[in-house]
Design a binder for these strands. Structure first.
Lengths: 357, 357
DNA sequence: CTGTTAGCGCCTTCAT
DNA sequence: ATGAAGGCGCTAACAG
């Protein structure tokens, strides 16, 4: 199967040096551009390297430089568009800095702590999504306490954190429902599952308090298979009474919406439903789902950027960085449909690549 | 900021050996389990390692073992659920083999070839998605021609390839539309963008030929921002005449469907629309989108598995491995809605994780 | 069974 | 400007 005759096969700095007729030091110098080198040897080395298709072995280089030139990203899972976008943003920015990214999914790992340790041995630092699925403790015990950026996680002394705004937008969204004359709002989602959801419930509660109302306790239930459908079922059975649902995310909102409609409920007539994330489906469903858009991709990019700063010696930002979000009004909240559908283009998101595969 | 007093900081095999009062060789032995070690020293080493929170540095180990214990995955982008699922399957299986996964997204890379080279220096092998965005040539020139697994790409002598079935299911799907009495079918998507799309068009064509019909040329156009909507617009303008659309993927089908409905078209009454991938939205939209489901996650897992086999010395599978797909009938093809919505659970896909973020 | 030692491939002073 | 040599942390013979 081997095709290239020796070339590239295992080209080392020695083979290049030999071919170029210089010492390995010179090779290293021209390739790293560290010290000045005569134009003559420079050319020879470049030619030899080119001919041998030489690229320094990462492991050897890492060992010598004491840097991995790689960033680690730890995500709980990969369902829905949120994580994918975050990852995309992270990878893009990391690449701009010349950093490779090694990904770790908590999902299904029996020994997350071990996996984290392994990860830590091959990256200069890691970004971790703050979620119940990823205990910060495990992250803390990482080898040589490398820099860690917490994404959408709880602030902690000593760890740099970034996230998207939640409380305010949740409050705004909730208030919007009140303005539509809704009175019995329910928050669907478990605040304990992630700081994001917790903050969304907080905003939900604040909006109530601002009107002297008592917020209903969040509807938290075991999120199994068809979480939304199950809840919708109970709703249809009359187990709850509400005229508006604030769901922790769009997936939840969408599945509830769908089942309710199957059950003959008029949305938003009988019941308003809003969510979070502005996933693709939110635009295509009828009525269009009112939701809030987060700069997820930018969040990922910021994580990579901050990580790089830390790796290159910069001091950690003391303040928690919060990225702005925006409420996206469609029809599921009770607003009237726009005369002409205007495609919503998230500013930080590039044109959606269509051609599946 | 540093918390641990020296422990873990930069614990090396030497510090562990010293603490345990043995030689570094013994430390290595108990940790790698290579040779038999007395229970006594074993305990001492384990204790010391534990205390120091020691984990061998990947780079050093790699250099010595001449293995990276990491798999590379190259994807064109990360839009839609397809790539995410593939990645998920890949990461999971790779992790089972104790392999880290370093991800490379072609999207936005100005110098893909360089990125690939860099990637190749830190993994034992790589899986690459076959798409126009990733020229196989670039992959071939990778350092030390490491094992490469081509996912959903064109077969090539010397490279192991795997993929999902396309031709047959496309033919089946197309035939289904014929059975609904449709006569003027249009294929929407560019066959040149990826082997998958190409094969889908092939199936589309075969179904026509089986009926002695001439398949229409694929509707390929610049896939920019709102590809589907743009096409729908032209369709509404009467630029094309058709009573059924076979779209290259669900995203495309969905956006077209949405715009057509806005334009007053009855789907499937006036026009049937079907797609590919069975994305979440396909279940929630009305009418439900008829599509074909691929074992994407399994495909990713298989890639990791095959890669591992190759890395560990196994000879490449000669035959192209094709995973089975399944046509998922809903209503957009003209079938009547099921009396009771039965949630479709892709066999290889775990329960949808709902709690956003 | 255990310690000593020689690399793995690369970068980097230190001389020249 | 360039070459020689040491060392990064770890594994794997090779002696004892």
């Amino acid at each position: 199967m081997a095709t290239a005759q020796g070339s590239g096969q295992g080209a080392t700095i020695y083979s290049v040096a030999e071919l170029a007729g210089v010492s390995i030091a010179s090779v290293s110098r021209v390739l790293q551009g560290s010290t000045a080198v005569s134009e003559k040897t420079r050319a020879k080395v470049l030619a030899a390297a080119e001919q041998l298709n030489y690229v320094p072995l990462a492991a050897a280089r890492s060992l010598a430089v004491r840097q991995h030139e790689a960033h680690g990203l730890v995500l709980p899972e990969l369902a829905g568009p949120y994580y994918a976008e975050l990852l995309l943003g992270f990878e893009s920015r990391a690449a701009e800095y010349g950093q490779s990214v090694v990904l770790l999914l908590a999902q299904g790992k029996t020994d997350l702590a071990r996996a984290l340790r392994q990860l830590a041995t091959r990256v200069d630092g890691l970004a971790v999504l703050g979620s119940a699925a990823i205990p910060v403790e495990a992250v803390a015990s990482v080898r040589g306490n490398k820099p860690v950026i917490l994404i959408a996680g709880d602030e902690r002394p000593g760890v740099e954190a970034i996230g998207a705004e939640n409380v305010h937008s949740a409050q705004e969204l909730t208030a919007h429902l009140f303005e539509h004359g809704r009175e019995h709002l329910l928050f669907v989602g478990d605040p304990d599952v992630s700081p994001d959801v917790r903050d969304r419930y907080r905003g939900f509660a604040k909006a109530h308090e601002a009107r002297g109302l008592e917020p209903a306790a969040p509807v938290r239930f075991a999120f199994k298979e068809s979480a939304g459908a199950a809840f919708a079922e109970r709703l249809l059975a009359g187990e709850f009474s509400a005229d508006a649902l604030v769901c922790a995310n769009d997936e939840l909102a969408l599945s509830i919406l769908h089942r309710l409609q199957d059950g003959g409920v008029d949305v938003p007539g009988d019941l308003a439903v809003v969510g979070w994330d502005d996933v693709m489906t939110a635009r295509y469903v009828r009525p269009g789902l009112t939701t809030v858009r987060q700069p997820v991709q930018e969040l990922g990019a910021l994580a990579a950027e901050r990580l790089h700063q830390r790796v290159t010696g910069a001091a950690p930002h003391e303040q928690l960085t919060v990225l702005p979000t925006a409420v996206v009004i469609r029809e599921s909240c009770g607003c009237r449909p726009a005369a002409r559908h205007t495609p919503l283009q998230p500013s930080t998101v590039p044109a959606p690549a269509p051609q599946g595969k």
